[in-house]
Amino acid sequence: MIWRFRFVFFILAFVYAVIIARLFYWQIVKAEDLSDIASSQYSQEIKLLPKRGEIKTSDGFPFVSNIVSYLLYANPKVIEDKDKVIDNLSIYLGSDTASLSALLSLDRFWVSLESDIDLGTKKEIEKLELGGIGFEEQFSRIYPEASMAAHLLGFVGKDTLGQDKGYFGLEGYYDRLLRGEEKSIIEIQDALGRPILSRMTEILKGTDGNNLVLSIDRTIQYIVEKKLKYSIERYGATSGMVGIMDPKTGGMIALASFPSFSPSQYQDFEEDVFKNPFISNAYEPGSTFKPLIMAAALDASLVTPQTKCDICGGPLSVGGFTLRTWNNEYFENIDMIDV
């Protein structure tokens, strides 16, 4: 009799232990996952991308600005006729049917289908009234002055996650400052999946990107680039660069390099052209540095315009090296004006 009692007791204890273990698993171990699944059935998190900061010239004209575009997304779990959605969207999007089919086959609540969609295309897609399809407002970069100051500005491309990111130039160096912080809100939905506008909760406050105001003079920049291109074509040079600095402040008034590229169509150019040679390349100043040396000597009263050069009559030995003129011609006892 006792062994039967013990047998039943152990069976009941085992059953209770299994039940407690399963309750612990679902309520403790998997609690966060279950909460996410439940939340996804009546709410969704919407991320609002910040407006990227503008880059302006010294007169306040936008070198780089933004236009409104749209991101097309889908919820594959609620799309009933995926073939219909694929056939209709492929007409308006750059993606082929195979790519759209792969995206809509994912076991996700949200997938990105296409970015940088203009307002006209958005309205045409909305007329189709496709279930499970939606749009998010985003900003696309525009360059009103086309390729002007391209090396200085850089461009905005995509990172590995498909998010906007600045590369090269000011867009790359000040990317975090220009990018800002995205805003997140929770949108509550009713039983039919329709948003309840009065039940939107902000969970992350975002800020738009900061603007950059440069010392660049737009008119001088245009003249410099025009003259630089003309000179390179006239003399058959492969490249060239010009920089103009305000000697009182050290601010750059113009900075141009050639060959250049178009920031809005950067994908059509080789990566080597993106680097700003004025900053990235090593360059031996040579004779172009002589006026600075002469100016410093005159300012320090070490020489005068009439001072004679007593070492200009031939090659000069310095530190075991012999320095010569480019054509091996020398002029003895010339003054600083002739030098």
Rank of each mutant, 00 (worst) to 15 (best):
G120H: 09
K30N: 09
M148L: 15
A102V: 02
S184L: 07
S301L: 11
D36E: 15
T307Y: 07
L128A: 02
R176E: 06
F61C: 12
I142L: 06
E270A: 11
F155N: 02
K275S: 12
D36S: 14
A300P: 11
G313V: 03
L128N: 02
T219W: 09
T121E: 01
G172Q: 02
G286D: 10
L178I: 02
W3T: 15
Q27L: 14
F258H: 12
E54F: 11
N328F: 15
S58N: 12
G131E: 12
P76G: 03
Y167C: 08
Q44F: 08
K82R: 05
S198L: 10
I185M: 05
C312T: 06
L298N: 09
E171C: 05
F24R: 07
R194C: 07
E124N: 06
K290Q: 09
A150V: 06
D217N: 15
A102H: 10
R108Y: 09
G251A: 14
I55C: 04
Q221L: 04
L106D: 10
I334S: 04
E171V: 05
D81C: 01
M148Y: 15
S99K: 12
Y222A: 15
R141G: 03
G206C: 04
A74D: 04
F139K: 12
F269Q: 01
D175F: 02
M294D: 13
I337W: 14
P50W: 00
L192V: 09
F258R: 11
I186L: 04
R4A: 06
F24C: 09
I185P: 01
G313I: 00
V303L: 07
L49T: 14
P277D: 02
N328I: 03
Y143S: 00
